[in-house]
C-alpha cells in the first residue's frame, strides 16, 4: 500500500479522524474547507502530531502512537508542496531548488519538466504565483522524496497557469511514479488528476 493511514487528532473544537489505505498513483483528499485536509497532510509530513493512530507510507512506518514511533519530519522524505509556495526569500530560485537535494542531484530534468529554466537566477519575490508554485513543486521533487504531499496546488491560479500545473502533476504521477496525496476542494481537479478520491466530510464537532 502507498498510503496506510489511520489517525485521530483534536484541533481546537473539532475532531479530525481519517482512515485510508491507498495503492499507487494519486490519491485525492476531497472535501469542504475546514474539514482538516491540510492537518492530515501535516500529520503525514510530521509537522503535526496525531493524538492516536498510525501512519505508514510505501510500507515504511512513520508514526505509531501505540508503539511510540514518531519519525522526525526531516527523516520522513516527504515532498511537501504547501498551499502557499514557502520559497526561502533570501535564496535565489536555484538555491531554493537545491536546498533539499542530494549532492549528486542535477536540476536539468525537473527544470525542463516544469519549464522553470529561465527563473533560476531570480529572487522568489519577483516570481508570479504560477512561477512560484512550479518552483515549489520542483524543490519538493528534487529533495529525493519517497512520496509527495500536494496542498491545493492549483488554488489562486488563473486558467492557463492551472493547466500548466495540472500537466506537471500528471507528468509526476505518470513518469516519476511517486505516491501522491493531494488535497483539493475542486471537483474538476479531483476527477481529472485522481487515481482515487477519498472524501473528508465536515468534521464531527467534538463532544464537550
Amino acid at each position: 500500500m502507498s498510503f496506510d493511514i489511520a489517525i485521530e487528532r483534536r484541533l481546537g473544537d473539532t475532531d479530525i479522524a481519517l482512515a485510508l489505505t491507498a495503492g499507487a498513483g494519486l490519491t485525492v483528499l476531497f472535501g469542504p474547507s475546514g474539514a482538516g485536509k491540510t492537518s492530515v497532510l501535516n500529520m503525514v509530513a510530521g509537522l503535526l502530531r496525531p493524538d492516536r493512530g498510525r501512519i505508514a507510507v510505501g510500507g515504511r512506518l512513520l508514526f505509531d502512537a501505540a508503539a511510540g514511533i514518531d519519525v522526525p519530519t526531516q527523516a520522513r522524505r516527504a515532498g511537501y508542496v504547501f498551499q502557499e509556495p514557502r520559497l526561502f526569500p533570501h535564496r535565489r530560485v536555484r538555491a531554493n531548488l537545491m536546498y533539499g537535494a542530494p549532492a549528486t542531484a542535477t536540476l536539468d530534468d525537473v527544470v525542463a519538466m516544469l519549464g522553470i529554466g529561465q527563473l533560476l537566477d531570480r529572487w522568489p519575490r519577483t516570481l508570479s504565483g504560477g512561477e512560484a508554485r512550479r518552483v515549489a513543486i520542483g524543490r519538493a521533487l528534487l529533495s529525493d522524496p519517497a512520496f509527495l504531499l500536494l496542498d491545493e496546488p492549483l488554488s489562486s491560479l488563473d486558467r492557463p497557469r492551472r493547466e500548466e500545473i495540472m500537466v506537471a502533476i500528471e507528468r509526476v504521477r505518470d513518469d516519476v511514479g511517486l505516491p501522491i496525496l493531494m488535497v483539493t476542494h475542486d471537483p474538476e481537479e479531483a476527477s481529472r488528476l485522481a487515481t482515487r478520491i477519498v472524501r473528508i466530510d465536515d468534521p464531527s464537532p467534538a463532544c464537550p
Binding site: 509537522l47 526531516q74 526561502f88
Partner: peptide, 13 residues
Amino acid sequence: RRLESAARTLGAG
C-alpha cells in the same frame, strides 16, 4: 515559522 517547517520537510534538521 512556516519557512522553517518547509526546510524540515526538505530534510533539514
